[in-house]
Amino acid sequence: MSPPTQDPQRLQRRRIQAGLNRTELARKVGISKSYMGRLERGLANASPRVLKWLAEGLSCDVADLMPPAPGTDSTAGAA
Rank of each mutant, 00 (worst) to 15 (best):
M1R: 08
M1Y: 09
S2D: 13
S2P: 15
P3L: 11
P4S: 06
P4F: 00
P4G: 02
T5S: 00
Q6W: 02
Q6F: 01
Q6A: 01
D7R: 00
D7Y: 00
R10T: 00
R10I: 00
L11T: 01
L11V: 07
Q12L: 14
Q12W: 15
R15P: 06
I16V: 12
I16E: 09
Q17C: 07
Q17D: 12
A18T: 06
A18K: 07
G19H: 10
G19T: 03
G19R: 09
G19M: 08
G19F: 09
G19E: 10
G19P: 09
L20S: 09
L20A: 04
L20F: 14
L20C: 08
N21E: 09
N21Q: 10
R22G: 14
R22S: 11
R22W: 10
T23E: 15
T23L: 15
E24I: 11
L25S: 06
A26I: 14
R27E: 15
K28F: 10
G30C: 12
G30H: 10
G30Y: 13
G30N: 09
G30P: 07
I31A: 10
I31G: 06
S32W: 14
S32H: 14
S32D: 13
S34E: 13
M36H: 12
G37K: 11
G37W: 12
R38N: 15
R38T: 13
E40C: 07
E40N: 03
E40Q: 09
E40L: 04
G42P: 06
L43P: 03
L43Q: 13
L43W: 09
A44G: 03
A44E: 12
A44S: 13
N45D: 11
N45I: 07
A46Q: 03
A46D: 01
A46G: 03
A46L: 02
S47V: 07
P48D: 02
R49F: 09
R49C: 02
V50R: 04
W53G: 01
W53N: 11
L54G: 01
G57K: 03
L58A: 04
S59P: 05
S59M: 08
S59K: 13
C60L: 05
C60E: 05
D61A: 09
A63F: 10
A63L: 02
D64L: 05
D64M: 01
L65N: 01
P67D: 02
P68L: 05
P68E: 03
P68W: 05
A69P: 01
A69F: 08
A69Y: 02
P70G: 04
P70R: 05
G71Q: 04
G71E: 05
S74I: 07
T75W: 01
T75D: 06
A76P: 01
A76W: 07
G77K: 00
A78V: 08
A78Y: 11
A79S: 12
A79G: 07
